[in-house]
Write a protein that binds this DNA or RNA. Structure first.
Lengths: 266, 266
DNA sequence: TAGTGGTCTAGACCACGAA
DNA sequence: TCGTGGTCTAGACCACTAA
């Protein structure tokens, strides 16, 4: 053989195993197993590209591809210049239905260490003003073409110096115009208290949740490492007579949240 | 210059733009913009590796890396031997709270085309039997060390020939033993009807939702293309006196579901 | 300063899908 | 059969982090 550069070889071994497994998958599988069985704990440094090249006798790109599997699975996080580390997962619980007193519910130990109270939550990048409602918001608010002006409130939430959620809220100008909702600071009780004062008290809520991978700009604004999905929540508030008065679109770092809903049987 | 092989060059252009952007990101950005503005529609084929190599005068690996960005963002799906295509998104709505009659709620046009009724749902890979409860389930069920035996029911749901959800349910043997819950077919009304007959009617539910990337074996069982997160739902059912009687862990294809919760204000 | 990941080149062989 | 993506080699230069 006078082949000078690469090409795939060594399939014999793989075939002999009965399963044609690419090398990079074997690397990924072994690292994954070591992470899941606790050989590497959250925060630990994993073997890097150079070490994997030696251990498995592969080219840089192949070692890299093996690591990229774990990174895309969200099990590992790369830090340029430092190494690849096992991801840590410490979410906050977001209670979708706050009205149910905690006492109503059995204590039931939590899976997640919910020390939310002791954490530091900041609000950031506040933008408030009038705007035209985008199509899907217009549909949800039931606005006809003659009244598409809305109050738009955009904010970012930062937990312990890490951005965790972006929120954009739309309210019909006919409902929320000329109230404190048009100001960055909505005052005590927030938007819903102001809506109540204006005779549009929210009475029912709908939340639609969807998970997907972030676009590049979302990943940047939320400082998401690769392998981190976002949860998109579309919340619509209705008055007692069924009129929609607010649509709130939230984009949350999936690694920072557990979403909890509690409800009674029919 | 007599450099024979690679290395990074052409940074001049990038610096001139004021932002050092790697080539593969520029490729990804331009393709993404074309997808988002509708130049490519869901299902359309995108330019492949070979074409991108020509268009941008880059090596195969670089073109590939550009495409991988879109694939990991879930915007594109690769089909070996065929090409890379714009992803189609047609989720089903899962209603977390079924008790609220549809009539209670304003019609409010849906964002998602919810034609769930006309789709074909199959149940698959059913496994029913006795088992030891894993630690976190034991904690949620409040089992002490003397009574850790549970009924385990594992199933997979397939919608229109595409697996969309895996479900594993655990019930204390003391509660569900010697009932039809131990059989693959639980009979009319299902598990909850049998629990009610046995004097353990579920009265309250808690659902904890979390999104993450699938592990390799989950991606395989759910036939998930890369760039697709899963939603992990941990549902606990309690009787009226607060005793937990079931824990159901579900793993759903995030691309197939929108999760909906509706509730009233406090 | 030494080591890490990030980006890139220029090739190669393969299995698979569509025509 | 031909084009596609999937896997792999063997290099290179860079920016960044940590000691």
């Amino acid at each position: 053989m006078f082949r000078v550069t690469g090409g795939t070889q060594g399939k014999e071994r793989l075939v002999a195993e009965g399963k044609a497994q690419p090398v990079y998958r074997r690397i990924a599988d072994e690292l994954r197993a070591a992470i899941l069985d606790g050989s590497y704990r959250p925060g630990d440094q994993l073997p890097g590209e150079n070490q994997l090249m030696e251990t498995y006798k592969v080219a840089r790109a192949t070692a890299r591809q093996g690591l990229s599997v774990l990174i895309n699975e969200g099990l590992a996080v790369p830090r340029a210049g430092a190494g690849v580390f096992v991801r840590e997962f410490r979410p906050v619980i977001r209670d979708g239905i706050a009205r149910l007193g905690a006492s109503t519910w059995p204590a039931g130990r939590d899976i997640w260490s919910a020390d939310a109270a002791s954490r530091d939550l900041q609000v950031d990048q506040v933008e408030v003003g009038r705007a035209q409602a985008p199509d899907h918001v217009r549909a949800l608010l039931g606005l006809d073409d003659s009244a598409t002006e809305v109050i738009r409130r955009s904010r970012r939430f930062v937990l312990d110096d890490k951005p965790v959620l972006m929120s954009v809220s739309w309210l019909p100008a006919a409902v929320a115009g000329a109230t404190q909702i048009e100001q960055p600071d909505t005052g005590p009780g927030g938007t819903y208290a102001r809506l109540a004062e204006a005779g549009h008290a929210p009475d029912k809520f709908r939340e639609d949740l969807r998970a997907r991978m972030p676009l590049a700009d979302e990943a940047e604004r939320l400082q998401l490492p690769p392998g981190t999905p976002v949860v998109e929540i579309t919340r619509t508030a209705y008055t007692a007579d069924g009129t929609p008065v607010e649509v709130n679109e939230m984009t949350a770092d999936a690694g920072s949240y557990v979403f909890r809903y509690e409800f009674a049987a029919g």
